[in-house]
Computed example of a mutant assay.
Amino acid sequence: MGLFSFIKDAGAKVFGIGKTTAEEAADAVAIAKEKATKLSNAIETLGLKVKDLNVEVNGDNASVWGQADSQATREKVILVLGNTEGIATVDDKMTVEVPEPEAQFHTVVKGDYLSKIAKKYYGDAMKYPVIFEANKPMLTDPDKIYPGQVLRIPALD
């Protein structure tokens, strides 16, 4: 899929990753490895199935390798990484077991809510559950989205 850009300071302060202190910055390599481990653990904890998952963090860039079980899983892994505070780009080097069409991505802006986004992409505000389901398990509540967050917008069947 390639390189994806995110707003690094808009991400969720999750997985114990965020801005580092001056003291932590002294050991950037160890911090990067720790962030990569936490991100890998988060992906596994969310139940996203990726064989031979490998995540590396270099500054505000995350790179990811492995074989996802589906295109949806691949896209969710990218979103887990990119929607984390401190990550500005995700270099996707994953493969997919069964290739499928790619979903669109939408960056949330102030005033957005899922039904408004559904109206924009599907022409029907009541299709918001499609977007909510497409972004589980990262989203746990359809009303809890934030500006700068990137969401998957799958095609309707």
Rank of each mutant, 00 (worst) to 15 (best):
A62T: 01
A62F: 03
G11V: 10
M1W: 04
G66L: 06
I153E: 06
G86K: 00
E34T: 07
T21G: 10
T21K: 06
L46N: 10
L48R: 03
N83P: 13
S70L: 08
A88N: 06
N135W: 14
P129K: 07
I153N: 01
A134W: 15
K144M: 10
T73N: 04
K119V: 05
S40G: 03
V64I: 04
G47E: 09
Y121K: 02
D91L: 02
V77K: 02
D69H: 06
D157I: 14
K35Q: 08
K116M: 07
T89V: 03
K35I: 01
G59W: 13
Q67L: 08
G86N: 00
K49V: 14
A36S: 05
P99L: 07
M94D: 02
V130Y: 07
N58I: 09
I78V: 15
A22C: 09
I153V: 15
L46C: 07
V109T: 11
G11N: 12
E56T: 05
Y122Q: 04
A134T: 14
E56H: 00
K51V: 08
K93T: 00
K33Q: 02
K76I: 12
K93E: 00
V90M: 07
E85N: 12
A22T: 12
P99Y: 08
A68E: 01
Q71P: 05
Q104N: 15
V90F: 08
N41W: 09
Y121G: 08
P142I: 13
Q67T: 13
G16S: 02
D52N: 12
T21P: 01
T95H: 00
K19Y: 11
L81I: 04
I117A: 06
M1Y: 05
Y146M: 04
A26N: 03
E75V: 08
L53S: 00
A118K: 05
H106Y: 14
I17Y: 07
T20M: 09
N54G: 10
F6K: 02
K8G: 01
P129Y: 13
D27I: 10
N135V: 12
W65T: 02
K93P: 00
D143M: 12
G82P: 02
D9R: 07
